[in-house]
Write a protein that binds this DNA or RNA. Sequence first.
DNA 1: TCCCGTAATCGAATCGTTTCGATTGCGGGA
DNA 2: TCCCGCAATCGAAACGATTCGATTACGGGA
Lengths: 326, 326
Amino acid sequence: MATLKDVANAAGVSVSTVSIALKHDPRVKETTKRKILEIVDQLGYRPNGIARDLKMKSTQTMAVLLHDLGGPFYSELVTGVQDVALAYDYSPIISCSIGGKGVALKRLLLENRVDGAIILDPYIEESFIRRVASPSLPIVLLDRDIDLPYVYRVTSDHEGGAYEVVSHLIEKGYQRIAFVGGPQRSFDNQLRFNGYKKAMESQGKAVDSRLIFAGDFTEKSGYALGLSLGGSDKLPDAIFAANDEMAIGLLRALSELGLKIPQDIALAGFDDIRLSQYTVPKLTSVHQPMYELGIVATQILFRALNGDSKIEPVVLSTQLMIRDST
Amino acid sequence: MATLKDVANAAGVSVSTVSIALKHDPRVKETTKRKILEIVDQLGYRPNGIARDLKMKSTQTMAVLLHDLGGPFYSELVTGVQDVALAYDYSPIISCSIGGKGVALKRLLLENRVDGAIILDPYIEESFIRRVASPSLPIVLLDRDIDLPYVYRVTSDHEGGAYEVVSHLIEKGYQRIAFVGGPQRSFDNQLRFNGYKKAMESQGKAVDSRLIFAGDFTEKSGYALGLSLGGSDKLPDAIFAANDEMAIGLLRALSELGLKIPQDIALAGFDDIRLSQYTVPKLTSVHQPMYELGIVATQILFRALNGDSKIEPVVLSTQLMIRDST
DNA sequence: TCCCGTAATCGAATCGTTTCGATTGCGGGA
DNA sequence: TCCCGCAATCGAAACGATTCGATTACGGGA
């Protein structure tokens, strides 16, 4: 692989001249520049980004860390990130932590291979984030509530979205509204539960612990809960599931038990995954603004990279999608 | 940020000693090593991966280039890649070309920032691939048919899968089987059409050009075609759509027109996206072995990285998923 | 006492850039 | 003729690691 030196030798000029010539610096004479470009072409010279990064102490690269790629929104999120990053001449690279034992994480964040990171991954430990975040490696954390220096936060308004969907159920006249939650330690889940609670209480309804159930955000857990719920004697008349996956599991179980939705029981989810528009009946859900999330997170990252450390957490509002299941 | 040199100074030893001490090289005395580690801790020293990469001429990193993340299978594909890469102590990083104007591509492939790449992206130009592929940057190309040095190929058996699903339709007694294709230039689409054709011809059925329609792999195009098809007088009795998205669009249009599936018209897709199990009726489709594709592609990449240049293209077989729509 | 082998450590070159402060050559003004 | 300024180019240090071939110190054998 040809290097700057090779080009310089072949052109009979110095390395530094070649270096600036390639940037179209007006200091180098037009004729020498042409000769240099010709030789670059001839030798197939390509700049070595690694060497440049080392010298420059900047990679013009940012990481987007996801748990896996299966999620329905990652595509939108990444598009948002990309749109902003491009304007700053940065490239986002994506890494999934799942199954990777953190090797990739370490390589990217611990070893200076990126200038900043956006993290949407509840499984990356707080201690790790604390360790890597620094002025030269700011981090934007999505959907998590960790207050650390050089760590900035953006989330969707899970609580508000949940409040809105539960209020909608109440408005529709449903009385006994159950909450099917995800993992306790999930931050999203807690917020969604808070929204449920506030909506119930604002209408003078006490939260009945017999109407609170816990799944794990998978369709399977929703299905299992649906079966046991549907078989019990005191069926609620509406269910708010903390995500669509579980709602779909519930839907499947309840349908199999012969219950009509929304006549016998109403059902709402959260996330507005694509599938929700195709279930029968179509599922009422709460849409998260993933594209905007990507945009805002990236803008914040660049503000931080430019030395602005006084950045308040941002909460983006969600949108209630009313469909046939309520 | 502390460097090796800082650590060396603080410990009163040379840079080289620190360097090898950190690798637990037995040449350094236990006591010095302990002291060094202590100082590493104290100074918060972190190795600079960029510097190491430069010296080592290897990044232990490979790129996975996708067009976007929206696809249903990318998650599985990446999991396969990751499982193999991990064994070689490599980290995959993912990059989406969509909307990026190729900046990221150039940064990764042209400037030596990765050791190899797996590409599943019909929009990356052949000339670009030709330019970057080299012994020190082998490329595995998925679902494309480009024969170049240092470029290796793995695909699903699109043709075989299509053959199988069309044969299944024929077996079920359908007579006038239409083909709804994607973009002409798409390699997958061509192969799927070939499979359709072969299956028809092997049963003595001529391919009737009036039964061939072209969409663009989107649900929208399927929907539009469905509307015009359903309104026409000579409706086929079965449709094989070259992907599930279009099949779902067709399904929606035909249902809206009051046609019963599969009684009035049968419908089959390709890809087996998750949605296909949730449509009404559930969609017959062809499953691609994405996880295996990731595994195989990555294994090939490492063979190439180890100097094996005699690698034949690999074709992985698909699986017919018979559901209610046929 | 001398020599040598070994264990422990060191110094310097190297990877391929960028950049800053020289250096050279040339033409014009006095 | 001399000097100055400018245009064009050069040389060397630096970025932070790795590694190979010294170098040092020490203890044992003759």
